[in-house]
Design a protein around this nucleic acid. Structure first.
Length: 661
RNA sequence: GCUGCCGUAGCUCAGUGGUAGAGCACGUCAUUGGUAAUGACGAGGUCGACAGUUCAAUCCUGUCCGGCAGCACCA
C-alpha cells in the first residue's frame, strides 16, 4: 500500500448511505462493524459492482455491498456457490482417492464439474461417498484463504505434489504474465484459482448432488488425454435442489424420442442407425411443416429445385468436399461381379450428397446467367447423408440422413446486405410463427486463414451484423470462427434440458462459386463471380421437429398437430352421428378420426390425451339429438358444447396455417 | 470416435450358472358406460449378435452391433 493512501476510506452502501472505515479493513471487518448477524451471513463482497473475497482489503473509496445467500444477483451468487462446490468436491475426491490429480473445475448452468485424472473409473457407486465427504468438509468449516504466489513457486509446488496438469497450466498463465493465486482450504489442501471464494467451506449450502461422470479431453482437444469429468448440480438450499431434480424429471417426459413413440410419430432401429422411420402421423407433421416452409419461400421469391442423391466423386473433388469432408461421406462403390450385364460406369465412384450446394451450382451453371437474373434464390428440401460419429447421434436431432430446408442465394457483392436482411427477417417471422422467440444468434467472423480480400470480408461481416440489427436479433461474437470461405450467422434453439442446437444459418461464400466456375454477365458485358449465400431456417426438418416436440411438450399448435380431432361417441347409438361429424370436420379441412371402440369415454379421453390429440369431440345422445358437439381441449378439463356449424367454423379457423402477415 | 453405463415381451422394468416374470399395451368374451384406465380370460420372448469358459450360459469372459449421458465433431 502506498504511503499516500488515506487513513479513512468511504464506502457507499447499496441503500445510498455512507460508511467510513480504516483503510486496510477487510470486507469481513466492515460486515462485523455493521452487525454480528451480517458478519455471519457474509459470503463475499461487491466492490464497485465486482465480486470479491470477503477478506479483500479495502484501499479506497468504493461502492460496497455484502453478498449473502439472500443476494439479489442470483446468477452471481449461484456461481460463487458452485465454484466453491467444485473445490469442495475436488478436495473430497482427493481425500477419498489419493493419487487422483485435479485439473479444471468450473461452474456450469446448474452446478459445476471437475475434471480429474485417475486410472480407475469413477462409478455411480462412488457418488454417494463423494457427496458424504463433501458434506463432511462443509461441516469441518475449513477457512478458505487466498494467497498470491510467484509462478515458479507454484510450478514447483504442483510438480512436487504430482499435479502435472496444474503445473502445466500455471506455467502457461505465468507466460501470459498473469498473477498466480491459489486458494487454501484448511491447512493442507489448495487449488490454483482466480477466485473469488466464500470465507470457509462451512458456508457452502448442502444442496448439491453428483449427477454423472463422463470423459472429457484435457484442454478440450480430442488429441489429448481423456479425463474423468464429474458433474454435480448445486443450489442455494435443498428446496431449490429438489425443484431442479423435479424439473429434470419433467424434461424427461418431453424428450422428443419419448414423445415420438407416445404420439406414434416415428421410430428408429439399428438396421438404419441415425435415420428415421416416419410413421403416418409423423409424416403428416413433417408435411405440414414442409408445406408451411414452401409457402413462405415462394412468397419470398425463392425457386424450388430437386437435385440427385448420388453424385460422381468428380463433382465432390471439384467442390473440395472429397478432400475436406470425405470421412463424413457415404461412398457407393460398385462391387465386382454382381451384375449380369456390363455396366459402363462400374469403375466410377459415387457418393451420397452430404450437402446440396455443389448441385445447386450445377443448376446455376446451366445457361449463361445475366446480372438481371440475380439475386437467384434456389431452394431445395434436400436430403443429405453424413456419416456422423456414433457418439453424436441423438434421436432425430442428430441423424445421418436429414433434410435441410436449404437454399443458396446467388447474388452480387452489392446484394449481400439486402439479401441478408431479407433472410433474417424471413427467419425471424418463421420462428415466431412456429412459437420460438428466444433465439440465440452466434456471429462468426474471419478466421486467420481465409479466402477473399479484407475488403470483401468487411462488406460481408458488415452485412450480417446489419441484418441482425435490422430485425432486432442480438448476437454473440465468435471471433475467428467463420468458415474459411466466409463469415456466418448461426441461429441456435435450446432443447428441454438446456442443450443448444443450431438450426438456422446464414453463410457468405466467396469460394465455391470460384471452385465450381459459377459466373454471370454483368451490366458491363464482362463475366463476374456471383457470391453465394448458404442459408437454412429450420436447419433440418428432423432436428426442428425434435425441437418443436420438446418445445411444446408434444402439445403442438392445432395447425401442426398431425391428428387434430378425434370424434368419440359415448354410446354406440351415437356412432352414426359421430361418423357424420367426422365427415363434416374433414370436409372443413381438419385431420380427424373417429374412435368407435366399445370403450368407456374415460378410457378414450385418457388414451387420446396421452397421444396429445389437441381436440376431442365428444358426442352422446344429447349431442346427436341437438346436432351439437362437446369439445374438450388437450389438458383442459373444461368442456364446451357448441352447435356443430359453430364448432366447424371455429376449428377450421383455428387450424389455419399461419401465413405471411 | 473417446470415457462410463446399458441391451430380458410392443412399452416400462424385475430376475436367475440348470433355457424366464410383473404392470401396461395386444386378442377374445361380457359390459352402452357423460370427460384421464370396466372386468374376466388368453396369446406374446432362440433374454442384441457371434465366439469362448463350463456337464450346463440370458447370467461369467471377449469381440461386434445398437442405445443413453458427457466429451470431441456438427444441421
Amino acid at each position: 500500500m502506498s504511503a499516500a493512501a488515506p487513513a479513512e476510506i468511504r464506502l457507499t452502501l447499496p441503500d445510498g448511505s455512507q460508511r467510513t472505515c480504516p483503510a486496510g479493513s477487510t470486507g469481513a471487518d466492515v460486515a462485523a462493524a455493521i452487525g454480528p448477524g451480517l458478519a455471519k451471513a457474509a459470503l463475499a463482497i461487491r466492490l464497485d459492482g465486482k465480486l470479491r473475497d470477503l477478506s479483500t482489503k479495502l484501499t479506497g473509496d468504493a461502492r460496497f455491498e455484502i453478498v449473502t445467500l439472500k443476494d439479489k444477483n442470483e446468477a452471481e451468487l449461484l456461481e460463487l456457490i458452485r465454484h466453491d462446490g467444485a473445490h469442495v468436491m475436488a478436495q473430497a475426491v482427493q481425500e477419498l482417492f489419493p493419487g487422483t490429480q485435479i485439473t479444471f473445475g468450473p461452474a456450469t448452468d446448474d452446478g459445476f464439474y471437475y475434471d480429474f485424472v485417475r486410472d480407475q473409473p469413477f462409478t455411480p457407486e462412488d457418488f454417494a461417498a463423494i457427496e458424504q465427504r463433501m458434506a463432511e468438509i462443509v461441516k469441518r468449516d475449513l477457512p478458505i484463504k487466498r494467497e498470491e504466489w510467484p509462478a515458479d513457486k507454484a510450478v514447483d509446488y504442483f510438480k512436487s505434489i504430482g499435479e502435472t496438469y496444474k503445473a502445466e497450466w500455471v506455467a502457461e498463465i505465468a507466460k501470459r504474465g498473469e498473477a498466480i493465486s491459489v486458494y487454501r482450504q484448511g491447512d493442507g489442501w489448495l487449488d490454483l484459482c482466480m477466485g473469488p471464494h466464500m470465507p470457509s467451506t462451512g458456508k457452502l449450502p448442502v444442496a448439491f448432488k453428483i449427477m454423472k461422470v463422463s470423459g472429457a479431453y484435457w484442454r478440450g482437444d480430442a488429441k489429448n488425454r481423456q479425463l474423468q469429468r464429474v458433474y454435480a448440480t448445486a443450489w442455494r438450499d435443498p428446496k431449490e435442489l429438489a425443484a431442479h431434480l423435479q424439473r429434470l424429471e419433467e424434461a424427461e417426459k418431453r424428450d422428443h424420442r419419448r414423445l415420438g413413440r407416445e404420439m406414434g410419430l416415428f421410430h428408429q432401429q439399428e438396421e438404419a442407425a441415425g435415420m428415421v422411420f416416419w410413421h403416418p402421423l409423423g409424416w403428416t407433421l413433417y408435411r405440414s411443416l414442409e408445406r408451411f416452409m414452401r409457402e413462405r419461400l415462394e412468397a419470398a421469391r425463392y425457386v424450388e429445385v430437386k437435385t440427385p442423391q448420388l453424385v460422381d466423386r468428380k463433382l465432390w473433388e471439384a467442390s473440395g468436399h472429397w478432400e475436406k469432408f470425405r470421412q463424413n461421406m457415404y461412398i457407393a462403390e460398385n462391387e465386382e461381379g454382381i451384375r449380369d450385364y456390363a455396366a459402363d460406369d462400374s469403375e466410377r465412384i459415387f457418393a451420397l450428397k452430404p450437402m446440396n450446394c455443389p448441385c445447386h451450382v450445377q443448376i446455376f451453371n446451366q445457361g449463361l446467367k445475366s446480372y438481371r437474373d440475380l439475386p437467384l434464390r434456389m431452394a431445395e428440401f434436400g436430403s443429405c447423408h453424413r456419416f456422423e460419429p456414433g457418439g453424436a447421434l441423438h434421436g432425430i436431432m442428430r441423424v445421418r440422413n436429414f433434410t435441410q430446408d436449404d437454399a443458396h442465394i446467388f447474388c452480387t457483392e452489392d446484394q449481400i446486405i439486402s439479401e441478408s436482411q431479407a433472410f433474417c427477417s424471413l427467419l425471424q417471422s418463421i420462428y415466431k410463427d412456429l412459437g420460438f422467440t428466444d433465439v440465440r444468434v452466434k456471429f462468426s467472423d474471419r478466421p486467420a486463414t481465409r479466402a477473399g480480400s479484407d475488403e470483401i470480408w468487411d462488406k460481408a461481416e458488415g452485412a450480417l451484423k446489419e441484418a441482425c440489427d435490422a430485425v432486432g436479433l442480438e448476437y454473440t461474437l465468435n471471433p475467428g470462427e467463420g468458415a474459411f470461405y466466409g463469415p456466418k450467422l448461426e441461429f441456435v434453439l435450446r432443447d428441454t434440458i438446456g442443450r443448444d442446437w443450431q438450426c438456422g444459418t446464414l453463410q457468405v461464400d466467396f469460394v465455391l462459386p470460384e471452385r465450381l466456375g459459377a459466373e454471370y454477365v454483368g451490366a458491363d458485358g464482362a463475366r463476374h463471380r456471383p457470391v453465394m449465400l448458404h442459408r437454412a431456417i429450420l436447419g433440418s426438418f428432423e432436428r426442428f421437429i425434435g425441437i418443436l416436440l420438446e418445445h411444446y411438450a408434444g402439445k403442438l399448435p392445432l395447425w401442426l398437430a398431425p391428428l387434430q380431432v378425434v370424434v368419440a361417441p359415448i354410446v354406440s347409438d351415437a356412432d352414426g352421428y359421430a361418423q357424420s361429424v367426422a365427415d363434416q370436420l374433414e370436409a372443413a379441412g381438419l385431420r380427424v378420426t373417429t374412435d368407435l371402440r366399445n370403450e368407456k369415454i374415460n378410457y378414450k379421453i385418457r388414451e387420446h390425451s396421452l397421444a396429445k390429440v389437441p381436440v376431442l369431440a365428444i358426442v352422446g345422445k344429447k349431442e346427436a339429438e341437438q346436432g351439437s358437439i362437446t369439445l374438450r381441449r388437450l389438458g383442459v378439463e373444461a368442456q364446451e358444447t357448441l352447435a356443430l356449424a359453430d364448432a366447424l367454423a371455429r376449428l377450421a379457423a383455428e387450424a389455419k396455417m399461419p401465413s405471411r402477415a
